[in-house]
Structures are given as C-alpha cells and as structure tokens.
Simulated assay, not measured.
Amino acid sequence: MASVLIPASAHAADPGDTIALPVRDALAALPIQEESRAGYSRDKYRHWIDADRDGCSTRNEVLLEEAVTAPEQGANCTLAGGSWYSPYDDATFTQARALAIDHLVPLAESWDSGASAWTTQERTAYANDLDDARALIAVSATSNRSKSDQDLATWQPPADGYRCTYATDWITVKTRWSLTIDPAEQAALTGTLDGCPNTPIDVTLAR
C-alpha cells in the first residue's frame, strides 16, 4: 500500500493509497457538483452485516469499539451494561439501545454525491465501513434522528466543541470514498473550518 502526499490539484491516487494533506487542501480537492437524489432507496445499501462472521453485526462492532466502559458480550453478540459517549450532544449513555450508529456522511448523502453510480458491493462496503473509524460513529438516537440525512449546510452537531472534528471527518470520509460536494455544502464546510485548525488528515482511499 502506497503512502503519498497529494496536493489539492492532483488526482493521481488509487484505491488503497493513503493520502495525507491539510484539511483545507482536502476540501479544495473535492469536486463540486450539484446533487441528485433520484432513484435513492435505503434498501440499496445492505447494512449491519457480519462481514467477519464472528456473530457481531456492524452495529455491535462499533458499539464494542467505541465503548467507554466495555459491555458484557453474550450469545449472538448480545451486549449488556457498558457506557458510551455521544460527541454530537456531549452526553453519556449506559444503555446500548439509547444509541444509533450514524453514517457520518449519510447513506442518502453518499448517493447524492456519487454512490448512485456504484455497484451493490461498493454500497455495502460503504454502509459497513469498519476500516476507518471516522465513517461510523455511535451517537445518541435523538441526535441521529435530528440529523437524519442532512449535510453540513442544514445540520451540525449541537455540541459546538465537536464541530471542527465533525467537519474534518466529513471531508475525510468524502475523500476516502471519492465523493463530491455541492456548493452549499462547500460553503458550510469552509465557514466551519474558518474557525478550526488546519488539521492534517490521513486517509486510505476506498475507491
């Protein structure tokens, strides 16, 4: 696997390459394109699979990985106890059922910005991406419902202190999956990053 530093003007990286560049440069490198939700259905993304056949679905894999206090794992990956921190609303939860696993860049948003042209296998990989910890995140079910399928132009985490991380991770996921952004999204990301450090991102390209 290659590791390369790519300037904003270059587009020579291949899937499996790891790129590193400041987040503002990563934002500038994302193609700008109007979005279309024509033909979208959540059913076109098979999610919460058990890719490694260990009995735990993608949802439970994320809950196990992100637990502040590890839950007990029973038969069929049933989880009991444990605690989790939801950065969207700066809140801690002690019951797994109070949490949702959020696609940081929502499934519908990925469809709008390029995934409509993907294969079924690519959409399944996106919906269950455990290879980059920024792609899926355990958050309160309340904040997940509030966000729904919105991008940064219309929704940002209620916890102000998390917004720089959220914008940076959003750009990282879009970079990883070679997705586009629309003009309103670009403006929102730019406005958010104006108040943030120009954090370097390091990401392995999925496609």
Rank of each mutant, 00 (worst) to 15 (best):
M1L: 15
L107W: 02
W84M: 12
Q156T: 15
A13L: 09
V62L: 06
M1Q: 08
P31H: 05
L179C: 05
T180K: 10
P157T: 10
S9R: 11
L5P: 00
D52V: 13
Q150L: 15
A13Q: 06
A13H: 02
Q186P: 02
Y85N: 07
S178M: 13
S140K: 11
D90M: 07
H11R: 14
S113D: 02
A133G: 10
T18E: 11
S178R: 15
G55L: 11
I171G: 05
T172V: 13
R207F: 13
D160R: 15
T165H: 08
A188I: 08
T168I: 15
D151L: 06
I171C: 04
V105S: 00
P157F: 02
K174W: 07
W170L: 09
P31W: 13
R37V: 14
Q121N: 11
A135I: 08
N198F: 01
T78S: 10
L99R: 02
F93C: 08
T18G: 00
V203W: 00
Y166R: 06
A115C: 09
T119V: 09
T199D: 08
Q186A: 15
I101N: 04
D50M: 11
L64H: 01
P183A: 14
T120Y: 00
E122G: 12
D54R: 08
D25N: 07
